[in-house]
């Protein structure tokens, strides 16, 4: 498939994703439903800091859990394959001459934007509510890094989507478990140094970990080179997972075609 056709497929897939999204949310339901949940989720953890009577911990938990929202939306890309299967379009997609990964990677791209914007809004709104220090104008550096986190998580989610492609029944289980596992392992609630060394090392290969270090660097006044280094590592992790998705997706789809497990009735 040439570049023009690839772009064309991705453009159509992106528009299909946007249409899906508009069917789920209006501005009102996004604000009154989704964003309220996000704010409460971040506040739930920030309140733990209040209970501990430790302002630094409140700030730490608030920042970590706000950024987790960007990761959460990225992981939601896992739901896309399930949705295709339920709609009965998955076998058609696999049978078509274009690669399913192209469609999935573009179709869920709105999740990156939604995730990053939700996380940034949660950080600023909850930050104002809990009175955490948002150092101006340094704090603006949080915006691009949050998009990198959302992209990296999306790459990871797309890779996992390929792995669970043929196992419809465990899709939601994988989404929720992955998200809570990221919450547990990526330095969201406690510093990485608190974990056993192997887990600390493993978490560096997961999305969110390095990006969150960059974000914390912004708040702590770390040198720009350190922040950029962590953000670059986050981007590298995202590219790595997306590459893994590209390499594995078609093979997994072929296997599903062979054993007939792609159909919604399977």
């Amino acid at each position: 498939m040439n570049a023009a056709a690839t772009v064309n497929v991705m453009r159509h897939a992106f528009h299909a994703g946007l249409a899906d999204y508009r069917a789920i949310f209006t501005w009102r339901s996004w604000l009154a439903g989704w964003f309220v949940r996000v704010l409460f989720q971040v506040s739930f953890f920030a309140l733990i800091g209040e209970r501990l009577g430790d302002d630094e911990k409140t700030s730490y938990l608030l920042v970590g859990n706000a950024m987790l929202v960007a990761g959460l939306l990225g992981i939601f890309s896992l739901n896309l394959t399930s949705a295709e299967r339920w709609a009965g379009t998955l076998p058609l997609l696999v049978a078509s001459p274009s690669s399913p990964i192209l469609v999935f990677s573009a179709r869920g791209a709105y999740l990156v934007v939604d995730g990053a914007l939700s996380a940034i809004a949660a950080l600023f709104v909850a930050g104002a509510i809990f009175g955490i220090d948002l150092p101006w104008p340094r704090v603006l550096a949080v915006v691009p890094v949050t998009f990198v986190i959302a992209l990296a998580s999306y790459g990871f989610g797309t890779f996992l989507a390929g792995v669970v492609f043929r196992f419809r029944s465990i899709n939601s289980l994988v989404v929720v478990t992955t998200y809570v596992a990221l919450m547990a392992a990526c330095g969201v609630n406690v510093p990485l140094s608190y974990y056993p060394e192997p887990l600390e090392l493993l978490s560096r290969f997961l999305p969110l970990t390095n990006g969150l270090l960059a974000i914390r660097g912004v708040f702590d006044g770390a040198p720009a080179a350190e922040i950029l280094g962590d953000a670059a590592l986050e981007a590298a992790v995202g590219i790595g997972w997306m590459a893994a998705a590209l390499l594995s997706f078609n093979r997994l789809a072929s296997r599903g075609r062979r054993d007939g497990s792609l159909d919604y009735g399977a």
Binding site: S169, T177, Y194
Partner: peptide
């Protein structure tokens, strides 16, 4: 298996909350 999701996440949440309190 979706019905069992809360049973998978409950121990994970317990670990997260315990880690926060222990570390503090």
């Amino acid at each position: 298996p979706d019905a069992l999701i809360p049973l998978v996440t409950a121990p994970l949440f317990a670990i997260i909350f315990l880690a926060i309190f222990r570390q503090s």
